[in-house]
């Protein structure tokens, strides 16, 4: 090729931006959900709160059915002022944390053993599937017999509910790891530990984190139940006590606290998810 293309010498006049022709390319159809909206997680809950306000303020909602938001607000401030809310919250949070931690560790270990060895799977998978069919809460009577009505029983109940989703999701993600990566690990002579560290664990991480989200939600649910059955402290106990005195507003405070805890912990797991799974290219 010998032709030399010289750029046309039309310098843009000083101070004036270059005029752009209108972009008339047919753009590819937009299929993804689009750019993320900031703080989008708050929009729905705020709308709900607004509806509650409106219903109470207009009198559509009887305060005996559901207290007004402002009553709940002042009750919450009183509960905080005399320290009852914090104390009970602390007890509840500790129970949930210990139970969840125990459940996560057990679920992860079982998933690894069952995912990496056929024998382990034969031994572990069946019982877990059976446990999955029985709600943890149905096991409470038995757990009370075994462990009494103290803290241990509560922690075990929470753990028993939390380990199942961790196990299921981790195990399934682990089994979905591409065989090609296993082959690669063989060709570079990975040791068992390195294989676990560099291939298995990162490969199963998306499943584990999904399981963790289920487990966290489940932990709060179990907490509510154990605290309303046999407890002398905790948010659930506070609500149960309020029920006997007919104090709807305290019950609502408890519900709001549970809701906030749920939202916050789910948000925390999602944050971990986003940071830990940066290598993925997804719709996200």
């Amino acid at each position: 090729m010998t032709a030399v293309i010289t750029p046309p010498e039309v310098a843009p006049p000083e101070g004036k931006p270059v005029e752009l022709t209108v972009d008339q390319r047919p753009l590819a159809r937009k299929l993804g959900p689009g750019a993320p909206i900031r703080l989008s997680g708050l929009i729905g809950p705020l709308l709900l709160l607004g509806a509650w306000f409106l219903a109470s303020w207009s009198g559509v909602l009887d305060p005996r059915i559901l207290s007004e938001p402002w009553t709940v607000w002042s009750t919450a401030r009183e509960l905080i002022a005399d320290g009852r809310l914090q104390d009970n919250l602390k007890v509840s949070a500790e129970r949930a944390t210990y139970g969840l931690a125990l459940g996560v560790v057990v679920g992860l270990l079982l998933a690894l053993v069952s995912g990496l060895s056929r024998f382990g799977e034969a031994v572990i998978d069946g019982p877990v599937q059976i446990k999955r069919a029985i709600p943890s809460l149905a096991l409470i009577p038995l757990l009370v017999l075994w462990f009494g009505i103290g803290e241990n029983m509560k922690i075990y109940t929470i753990a028993l509910g939390a380990f199942v989703p961790i196990y299921l999701q981790t195990h399934s993600a682990l089994r979905k790891i591409d065989l090609r990566y296993v082959e690669l690990a063989q060709t570079v002579d990975l040791s068992r530990t390195d294989f676990l560290r560099r291939v298995v664990l990162p490969g199963a991480l998306p499943g584990f984190l999904l399981g963790l989200r289920f487990a966290v939600t489940g932990a709060w649910i179990s907490l509510v139940v154990v605290e309303q059955i046999n407890a002398t402290s905790g948010i659930g106990y506070m609500m149960e006590l309020a029920r006997t005195y007919g104090q709807t507003e305290i019950i609502v405070v408890g519900l709001v606290v549970y809701g906030l805890l749920g939202l916050l912990s789910d948000g925390a797991v999602r944050l971990i998810e986003r940071r830990a799974l940066r290598w993925q290219r997804t719709l996200g």
Partner: peptide, 15 residues
């Protein structure tokens, strides 16, 4: 066959 969850250098030094 690069591990998608490992950065390029970590992939290179695998094993």
């Amino acid at each position: 066959r690069l591990l998608p969850w490992a950065r390029v250098l970590d992939n290179t030094t695998l094993g």
